[in-house]
Computed example of a mutant assay.
Amino acid sequence: MKDSSVKAPARATRRGTKAADAVPPAAVAPRGDTAPTTGTRRKKAPVQVRAQLLQAASDIATDQGVPAVTLDAVAERAGVTKGALQYHFANKQGLLDALFEQTLERFEQQMHARIEKGVAEGAPQHGAAARAYLHTTIDEASPAASTNVLRVLVAAMMTDPAIRERYAAPMRKWTRPDPLPLEAAARLMICRLAADGLWISDLLGYQNMPPRLRDEVVRQLEQLALAKR
């Protein structure tokens, strides 16, 4: 009778080795300090990509005008593929609509913020919307003001009837007459029209008004918006 007590451990060792060899590499969890970091790229969230595309469209429109806002140009500027762009915007019109909607939302947010700030500081409620429109329209420091994209889009409305027809309606709510007696409503309308005149003259570049004179014009328009009679 053969003694198998010596060979048994050897057979167990061979079985253990084969079992270990059979485990696929993917099933073995790598140690934290040896995990591979190359070749992996995290995809950007759709919301982030959409914001990137709108920012690229905004930059192109501001720098070169609305006609320069093409799908290829926006995709290249945003650093994404044209297919990724079309996942969010099927065509140029859809992109422009989203850009215009975003610009209007930011403008309205600024107006509401100015009205709320005025109320908190004890400013009279009379003429609050007109004063907010005045300052939001002529504000050159804020990126959400009409000094950037909104001005470019409105400039396009002046020359393109299709753009004008498409976007004029949502803008009318900012300039609709106040529900006040005729004289008071007229004064507030004059304030809004003067604000439009200020930024349009800046847009066209034909008015070189000294800063002190411009400040005084704004101050008098504020007073006009405060007057009840």
Rank of each mutant, 00 (worst) to 15 (best):
K2R: 14
D3I: 04
S5P: 01
K7L: 14
A8Q: 12
P9Y: 05
P9N: 04
G16M: 10
A19K: 14
A22Q: 11
P24I: 03
P24H: 06
P25V: 12
P25S: 11
V28N: 05
A29R: 14
R31E: 11
G32I: 12
T34G: 05
P36D: 05
K43F: 07
K43H: 11
K43M: 09
K44R: 14
P46I: 01
P46T: 01
V47T: 11
Q48F: 03
A51H: 05
L53F: 06
L53C: 08
L54S: 02
Q55E: 15
A57F: 09
A57L: 07
S58Y: 08
S58Q: 12
A61E: 03
A61N: 07
T62G: 06
D63C: 03
D63W: 00
G65S: 08
V66C: 06
A68F: 02
V69I: 08
V69K: 06
A73K: 01
V74L: 05
A75H: 04
E76N: 11
R77D: 06
G79T: 01
V80Q: 08
G83L: 07
Q86P: 01
H88S: 06
F89R: 00
A90F: 06
L96M: 07
D97F: 11
D97W: 09
L99A: 13
E101V: 09
T103G: 04
E105M: 09
F107S: 08
E108C: 01
Q110I: 06
A113D: 11
R114H: 05
G118D: 00
A120L: 05
E121W: 00
A123R: 04
P124E: 00
G127C: 02
G127V: 00
G127Y: 00
A128L: 10
A128D: 06
A130T: 01
A130F: 04
R131W: 03
R131K: 15
Y133D: 06
I138L: 04
I138D: 00
I138H: 02
D139E: 10
D139T: 08
A141V: 08
S142A: 14
A144S: 13
A145C: 08
V152Y: 02
A155S: 14
A155W: 09
M157V: 10
T159R: 08
T159F: 04
T159V: 15
D160P: 05
A162C: 00
A162Q: 14
R164T: 07
R164V: 02
E165D: 15
R166P: 02
A168Q: 14
A169R: 14
R172A: 13
T175K: 05
P177C: 03
L182W: 12
E183V: 12
E183C: 05
R187W: 01
R187G: 03
L188C: 00
I190V: 15
I190L: 15
A194M: 14
A194C: 15
D196R: 05
G197M: 15
G197I: 13
S201H: 10
M209W: 07
R212H: 12
R214C: 01
R214I: 03
E216Y: 07
E216M: 07
V218M: 08
R219W: 01
R219Y: 04
R219L: 09
Q220M: 13
Q220W: 09
E222D: 15
A225D: 00
L226W: 02
A227L: 07
A227I: 00
A227M: 09
K228D: 03
R229M: 08
